[in-house]
Amino acid sequence: MQTWDDRQPIYQQLAALLAEQLIDGDPPEGDAMPSVRALAGQYLLNPLTVSRALQALGEDGLLENRRGMGLYVKPGARDRLKQAERRRFLEAEWPRLRERLRRLGIGSEQLNWEAR
């Protein structure tokens, strides 16, 4: 079972999870999102919670409603998400990481950039 933490409302956590999958191309741009019922069954969530998550993604400009056909991944959604993730990394994560690297005395030449 998917576990949810206590930090954010569950619909936001689901929206974040679905956004991560969109970055990975699942589903690809232009394709239909899974239905509310399918997602509800998959994550064992009330359909209203799923609807709220999809609505949040729609408000972020990632999904579009095609009348009578449901929600589709908007062209350019992956780029938008990646941009937002990069901004978040550079603004929030990087300063903390840089601080930690400095404190530990680790320079960029000591970091292995090749390993997978």
Binding site: M1, R37, A40, G41, L44, L45, N46, P47
Partner: peptide, 15 residues
């Protein structure tokens, strides 16, 4: 319990 929850969502949550 998990199969019960699945059935609840799949069969009963139709709006």
């Amino acid at each position: 319990r998990k199969s019960f929850y699945e059935m609840l969502i799949d069969e009963w949550c139709d709006g």
